[in-house]
């Protein structure tokens, strides 16, 4: 056995080498491996002026009349920064905001999340936050009207409404003292998500706006979740059969053209996120219309329309 082993090993190496040779000859595409240091920076600088940047441990002020906010701490009478970012001041409160962090929920935010657990009268939802969010059974619209009493039967049926792995869109109802979020889906806009594509980006790239649900005129709708989860799906034609509730139609076949549009939008969002551009309806649509494959007719028409409506 002791002699057998090395022979066996060398045989395996030989086979391995032959395999790689085969790969090299047969595949015209060669694999390129680059070190991170050689990567090109894709960020696009908009302006050259930039505010003062604070890094961890740097003294912000030694005067003690200020209050310490997020991203700061006090040591030996000095107020120091604990993250890398720019300073924000509201009256006496100083905080330093990092450019990138986990999602910090605020009441009223639209989020897209994934169910991770079904518990007693509640679901646990992963929303890219520090702790899993909670969706209470009492804060969802159950099928059969808003003013329905929740019975013990509903508690047993919970997994039929939403089970582990399901995606939902929801709104932040309140923030608990430990920082975890309580969600609600008490509107027809929110609920279980059906067919579509999920893209995850850093939460700070999503610009806050009045609405986070957009019907793009190119034939797809997107939900820009404040938590950095973006949902792209085919346009909902009539408002009556809107997404709200727990109906998920996986039987319906989405036409090829719509699927192409959706995947193009996904690529546009990834490209924007790669170069650290803010994501909102206009930026996504502009990126999409820059695409040479989108119909030229549409291209001129929308460009003109968007241009005139905005400027």
């Amino acid at each position: 056995m002791a002699i057998c082993f090395p022979i066996h090993m060398s045989f395996r190496i030989k086979v391995g080498l032959r395999f790689f040779k085969f790969l090299n000859e047969k595949c015209p595409k060669k694999i390129h491996i680059r070190l991170a240091a050689h990567r090109v920076n894709t960020s696009v600088a908009v302006n050259q002026r930039y505010p003062k940047i604070y890094t961890p441990g740097e003294v912000i002020t030694s005067q003690n009349e200020f209050m310490r906010g997020h991203g700061t701490y006090e040591e030996n009478g000095d107020l120091k920064s604990s993250v890398a970012g720019v300073r924000e001041q509201v009256n006496n409160l100083i905080s330093v905001r990092p450019l990138k962090s986990r999602y910090n929920g605020e009441v009223g935010d639209v989020v897209v999340g994934r169910i991770t657990e079904v518990q007693q009268r509640r679901w646990k939802v992963d929303t890219n936050s520090r702790l899993d969010s909670v969706l209470l059974l009492s804060s969802v619209n159950l099928p059969g009207g808003e003013l329905r009493r929740r019975s013990a039967e509903d508690e047993h049926m919970m997994r039929q409404f939403l089970q582990e792995g399901d995606l939902i869109s929801a709104e932040v109802q309140s923030v608990f003292s430990d920082g975890s979020l309580s969600l609600h889906t008490r509107s027809l806009r929110y609920g279980k998500l059906g067919q579509g594509v999920l893209v995850k980006v850093f939460p700070s790239l999503i610009r806050r706006s009045k609405t986070h649900f957009h019907n793009l005129p190119v034939g797809a709708s997107i939900i820009l979740g404040n938590n950095g989860f973006i949902w792209i799906c085919p346009t909902i034609n009539n408002a009556e059969e809107s997404v709200g509730g727990f109906i998920q139609n996986l039987e319906e076949v989405i036409p090829r053209q719509e699927r192409e549009t959706i995947s193009r939008i996904r690529n546009c969002i990834l490209a924007l996120a790669q170069s650290k551009m803010m994501l909102f309806d206009t930026s996504v649509l502009y990126a999409y219309l820059r695409n040479p494959l989108s119909t030229p007719y549409l291209n001129c028409w929308y460009q003109r329309r968007w241009w005139t409506s905005r400027y």
Binding site: A45, Q48, P51, I53, T55, A84, V86, R97, M277, M278
Partner: peptide, 22 residues
């Protein structure tokens, strides 16, 4: 390291347009 961090923050911050910051 500090220099690298500042450079990175400056790069990312100016392409997001220092969003949400004063």
């Amino acid at each position: 390291l500090d220099e690298a961090v500042r450079l990175h923050v400056r790069d990312v911050g100016s392409s997001t347009g220092w969003a949400g910051t004063g």
